[in-house]
């Protein structure tokens, strides 16, 4: 019986592996480094990680649209603007990631979504309506969020989304609101300190993610295991089915917070600048969102939000410096 189960699960793993090669979403510009020297990078750090960029991006990756003028008062959106349309509708529609603890997750007590990314949506709603609860969330996976932002089905799409040139072909990105990096989560006392120390061991990441590709590309040869959602990785780690989880630190923080017997180790292996996806046909909304992002850094809300959710990763780093292409 146990042999049969083991066979079944390795068959599943094999299928997952094949699957990742086939339905890898467009994320080629995300730095996948084999020659990186992470030791030279101090972490946490500011945007970007210069030492981690093996190839120059093929586009202006981080440059967004500069805010114009001061932010309007709540309820006084410029006539004819995208924001005025949202105000008239009465709610901001935001596509958000699936349940990821501390980033965007449903608090079972209240039934409300909470987290680091949800704070941003609330701040934007507060500027438009003077009421941070007037947000309608649609929980979607990465491809669904990308499509929803591109078609304008939603006003904004957030949720641990790395800015990439390929995605930029479809949607506009806000400035960077968080600089993530891929790290490794292991059981405490495992002695593992990096991805390199996981030769031949099983390492879990979300199916179709750049994290899984990075695991696959690691020279020491860890065995990548893809699952539908990153929380499934923690299940597998607890059940002893994988030896480590490797993905963005923001996601790992959510896992580590659910299991005090785990720890995040190693230095960032990649640079994952997170941005908010917006319909490219609404440049006014992009400028508006960037202005809100700037203000929440200035008035300390960014830092407060980090302290509320992500302290597992250490003290708050300096917020990402906005870059504009005007």
């Amino acid at each position: 019986m146990s042999i049969r189960l083991a066979l079944a699960s390795s068959a599943v793993a094999a299928v997952l592996l094949v699957g990742t090669a086939a339905d890898q979403p467009a994320d080629h510009s995300a730095p996948v480094s084999q020659t990186a020297k992470p030791e030279t990078v101090t972490y946490p750090s500011t945007v970007p990680f210069p030492g981690l960029e093996p190839t120059a991006p093929t586009c202006d990756l981080l440059g967004s649209l500069r805010p114009q003028g001061p932010l309007p008062e709540p309820g006084r959106m410029p006539a004819g603007s995208t924001m005025a349309g949202i105000a008239e509708r009465g709610r901001l529609i935001v596509a958000i990631g699936l349940d990821t603890y501390l980033i965007s997750f449903r608090n079972p007590e209240t039934g409300q979504l909470e987290g680091f990314d949800i704070d941003i949506a609330g701040d934007i709603a507060e500027v438009i309506f003077g009421d941070r609860s007037r947000v309608e969330y649609r929980q979607l996976g990465v491809p669904g969020r990308l499509a929803a932002a591109e078609s304008g089905d939603v006003d904004l799409a957030a949720g641990t989304t790395t800015i990439t040139c390929r995605r930029r072909d479809q949607v506009e990105f806000s400035t960077v609101y968080y600089q993530a990096g891929q790290r490794v989560l292991v059981n405490r006392g495992s002695g593992i300190t990096s991805l390199d120390g996981l030769a031949g061991r099983r390492v879990c990441a979300a199916r179709g993610s750049t994290s899984l590709q990075k695991v696959l590309a690691t020279p020491s040869g860890p065995v990548p295991v893809g699952v539908p959602s990153v929380t499934d990785c923690l299940v597998m780690l607890q059940l002893g089915e994988v030896d480590a989880v490797s993905t963005d630190d923001a996601l790992l923080a959510g896992l580590a917070a659910q299991d005090p017997r785990t720890e995040i180790v190693g230095l960032p292996l990649t640079a994952e600048p997170y941005g908010i996806m917006i319909n490219p046909a609404a440049p006014d909304l992009v400028r508006f969102v960037n202005a809100v992002l700037e203000r929440r850094v200035e008035d300390g809300r960014w830092r407060a939000s980090y302290q509320r959710w992500l302290t597992t990763l250490g003290p708050p780093p300096s917020p990402p410096e906005p870059q504009y292409r005007d």
């Binding site: 997750f105 007590e109 959602s229 929380t231 299940v235 659910q258 299991d259």
Partner: peptide, 20 residues
Amino acid sequence: ERARANNRQGLPLGVAYLRR
């Protein structure tokens, strides 16, 4: 049971165990 224990603490891990 693991799903319930985690869910009771309000952790999304509970639902991951339930799905499993």
